[in-house]
């Protein structure tokens, strides 16, 4: 699965989850995701409870997420929670702490347990 497909799947999981749609209904943010090893960039946009994804870094980011291809893929495909690579310094997140926390909660609500 390509990274874009991983992110599209992540967005689909969010959009099909009623609880997440309600939680994110006023969370309008752009997240730019950069792979440090390949240099590739992707984006996720949350707008009125719906998440969209795409390639490139043309948007001004509210939250920037950086890590290796493997770490990014693992986090956004649910193989790994963001907490561990974040604590280990393998996942760098620039932005407001609240947004980081929300991203963490989103991944846990999709894939937790």
């Amino acid at each position: 699965m390509t990274m874009l497909q991983v992110l599209e799947n992540f967005a689909r999981e969010c959009n099909s989850n009623d609880r997440l749609r309600q939680m994110n209904r006023e969370w309008n943010r752009t997240i730019v995701i950069r792979e440090t090893d390949s240099g590739n960039a992707y984006w996720l946009r949350s707008q009125e409870g719906t998440i969209q994804s795409g390639e490139g870094s043309q948007f001004e980011a509210d939250l920037e997420v950086e890590g290796s291809h493997d770490v990014i893929r693992s986090v956004f495909s649910g193989e790994m929670s963001p907490t561990e690579p974040y604590n280990a310094g393998d996942l760098l997140v620039k932005g407001r702490q609240d947004d980081l926390m929300r991203l963490d909660i989103i991944t846990l609500l999709i894939w937790g347990e």
Binding site: N87, M101, D104, I105, L108, G112, E113
Partner: peptide
């Protein structure tokens, strides 16, 4: 609690 706490307890407490 079941979904969030196993991971959130690993976060820096100040978060």
């Amino acid at each position: 609690a079941r979904r969030l706490l196993p991971e959130m307890v690993k976060m820096p407490f100040a978060m």
